[in-house]
Amino acid sequence: MLTQRLFWYLSIIKTKQQIRYLSCWSCGNNITTMVSNLFCSNCKVLQRPDKSENYFKVLGVKETYDLDESELSMKYKELQKYLHPDKYANRNKEEQEISAQYSSLVNDAYKTLLEPLTRGIYMLRLRGKEIPENTQLDQEFLFKIMEKNEEVENADTEEEIMRLDKENKAVIKDLQKQLSTAFFDGDLKRVLHLLSHMKYYTSIDNQIQTAIRNKGIFR
């Protein structure tokens, strides 16, 4: 008897959740009539982000490795125009919270998709894979990386640093091109290989950028 009643209560809560999910959280209006799925068309209240959506969908860009960076930043700015918490200072607390949550999600999405390395790692994760944590022993490649790192460490003149920067940027650009093909072919093994190489070159890039800052080189 008691368990039956409990079950009944649970089913009510369940349907209630479903109803809430399908309609505006504030006025109860049906979601299908909503404009652009950010706001309720009836009461104009900001809706919660859809947790099942990936970063590409959140920003409304095409899900591909070689995405248009200017389009990405345009979409990002456009979204933040509507979502930024400053816009909700006079609204109720719940809507303020949704705005903070949504706008930080959009920030994360933008930051992740903008960089070729983090974008690749994210796309790999969407396909259920990660760069492994184990130790790499490809001697020839590691030797090359070690040498490059030492070269950056020993570079003193502005000319030298800028040359290394240019060279390293070209390597990363080339890896980016190869990654794009690998993603297009669905060759995840190759993607994994290229991304781990890109990680090393991005570390070198960070080192070069700090060297540039420390030397006070202006570009």
């Binding site: 130790t135 790499q136 022993l137 490809d138 001697q139 590691l142 990386i145 990680k199 570390s203």
Partner: peptide
């Protein structure tokens, strides 16, 4: 010994 960590881009000799 020359080893690397692909997950963080570190190299160690």
């Amino acid at each position: 010994g020359l080893v690397g960590a692909p997950a963080c881009g570190d190299v160690m000799k």
